[in-house]
Design a protein around this nucleic acid. Sequence first.
DNA 1: TATGAATGAGCATTCATTCAT
DNA 2: TATGAATGAATGCTCATTCAT
Lengths: 212, 212, 212, 212
Amino acid sequence: MEDWEWIFETVGDDGQLTEKQKQIIKAAIETFAEKGYSATSTNEIAKKAGVAEGTIFRHFKTKKDLLIAIVTPVMKKLVAPFVIRDLNKVLDQKYDTFEAFLRALIENRKQFLERNFSMIKILVQEVPFHPELKALFQNHVAKEPLQKAMAMIRHFQEKGDIAPLSPATILRLVFSAGVGYLLARKIIDPEYWNDDEEMEATIRFILNGLKP
Amino acid sequence: MEDWEWIFETVGDDGQLTEKQKQIIKAAIETFAEKGYSATSTNEIAKKAGVAEGTIFRHFKTKKDLLIAIVTPVMKKLVAPFVIRDLNKVLDQKYDTFEAFLRALIENRKQFLERNFSMIKILVQEVPFHPELKALFQNHVAKEPLQKAMAMIRHFQEKGDIAPLSPATILRLVFSAGVGYLLARKIIDPEYWNDDEEMEATIRFILNGLKP
Amino acid sequence: MEDWEWIFETVGDDGQLTEKQKQIIKAAIETFAEKGYSATSTNEIAKKAGVAEGTIFRHFKTKKDLLIAIVTPVMKKLVAPFVIRDLNKVLDQKYDTFEAFLRALIENRKQFLERNFSMIKILVQEVPFHPELKALFQNHVAKEPLQKAMAMIRHFQEKGDIAPLSPATILRLVFSAGVGYLLARKIIDPEYWNDDEEMEATIRFILNGLKP
Amino acid sequence: MEDWEWIFETVGDDGQLTEKQKQIIKAAIETFAEKGYSATSTNEIAKKAGVAEGTIFRHFKTKKDLLIAIVTPVMKKLVAPFVIRDLNKVLDQKYDTFEAFLRALIENRKQFLERNFSMIKILVQEVPFHPELKALFQNHVAKEPLQKAMAMIRHFQEKGDIAPLSPATILRLVFSAGVGYLLARKIIDPEYWNDDEEMEATIRFILNGLKP
DNA sequence: TATGAATGAGCATTCATTCAT
DNA sequence: TATGAATGAATGCTCATTCAT
């Protein structure tokens, strides 16, 4: 069982996936990530999964359903750190400063990205082309998590940790810098990449950039 | 004649494209951007361009050739600001400070993005899936322009405008913040987006973040 | 069930062909023979076979595979009389004289040609244009059968039935006369063709021509 | 100017062919012989001939017309030895015996085959598939030449040189043996082919086979 | 006369999906 | 539940032929 197989727990009504279903999802993730959704044939997925082509359509009514089955749980987990009950308690107890919070957040998302790179790649590639996925995105990402994230920012602004800009702007700046760092790690040849230094530089950059 | 039709001047040997070729390229850009390269059929392009399907293949031997004909000139222009002879002269004469340079750069790329959004969307979407495009990218983007950009950063470091971090790291940080800003402009509902404020905030963020 | 349907027993791994596959092969034989391989479209074959075009490609990966599936078993049977174990026993027991052997051979091949004319026509027409078929021909026709045929000729030379020319030359002369006879039967208007007389004349011609 | 270019003198109304037309015919002969008529595209012929595709259709209304322009003169020349005025004079003056005639005939056709192999290959391959060519064949080959050939045979029968079989049968036997010899020469590896010996054997075989 | 761009029907092949077993 | 044969529409691409230049 691999690291990213948590996905199997979230699909389906009762959290029960047969072995075949898992094989299909796994094969689909690999192939969609490698060649793109449109350029992947169900035949190819069936072969890689070791099942008959018909079996795919027994479990996922259409090819697009298969895509949705992959993308939905990833969307949810993607913004997991921002779906918190008792947000303020967590902040008060765990994160004295914005810096502490930022370090924890980046570290956490770094691990998530590491373990789910293929799925996130599919998500990013395909959302622009499928209205269903856009709707999913709006539901799972653009509503509650966004509010929570901005509440966090306000919290640290009140504490005087960061400048009194619009929380949406700050979110965007932090997000850009964070995603830029995470993406560069995956793209740049490890030979030229000193991860500790780069992470430190990124955090310094954000903190200085947002100094009140 | 639309804004982005500069592309027609760069395609072909002698810069001569027939009207039909232009129609095909235009239709292809629209459709590739809307549905993705793989999900677009040549039949669809032909209809949108108002030509026979065979005509497409007279001018572009394969569907992929058509993609390449679109993507190649965009790649070149994408990094145009960093392909400069007499780099230092330009910097000395035109940009007293890093801030001036940064403002000019963002403004310039903002216009480019505005006029070429579809083509850049295609480029970003398809590069990961086509080795030929990756190779093009390496030739046109990852070599000379990167060197030039880092030389610029060193220039401003020597002037004491920005912190003495590794130029590659600074490039990444500025690039992340810049792209984040440009992307947000296009994605976020204009009702909630005050462009002047956001640009100002972004520039402040970068300058503060990189203060020596 | 027609005469020539022995072909179905030799195709496939376990000699099992579905009804659809048989329909496809039958339609392909008819059409290839009538119009030639290149001038026949898979659409045409599908219609004549009463199946969907896709069905052809489920069973024969390419159009050329279909050709090969037709031609291979015919090649094997074409030289069947010369693929014999215990060659000498057969000759000693069954054929006292070269004449007896020659009569039996011509009669046997006459029937084979009658029943497989279309397939042999395809074979002869297409071998020159397809390297794969040439290779098949060399394997199935030009090796063992040729050796066997020449051994037979030597056998009758030793018995003093035929002149002591090179066996290869004799083979060629007999083959030319035999094929000439078989071809003429099929081409010449039956009204002008007295088969018994022509066969007798051909056999006399060969026997006299090769008298020691 | 190559050996077989006599073909150019017979095509066209007034025996005048432009250089372009010659190039086209030459390219067509090469390609038809190599890949077959149906498998050859006019584009391919145009490229090989160094002319525009439209030029082909200016000179030969359709692709089939081009085939006919190639095949017709070859058909005429193929049976040239049997299209003779004053047949008996020729026979009395030039050929004392059937053997002398046979030798001269084979030698003459050998040279013709040598010089026109590609065109004869096309002729043999395509006649079965094109009713127009079949009609041409009947006109040019199956009428006068056949009568002449049979008259020759009767002449030698009256002289007592060959057996009193039906002239048609004798023609067939001689033709089979002759074509078998000519074909074998072209097909069999020259290393294993002693032409003088084989020709001698073939002539002996025919003469003995037809001895009265 | 010669060109080569343009055509649209036709090509072999692949596709997502269905359905009898 | 799982299979894989069957489908026919759709795919990217080629074809012989036409026609304005």
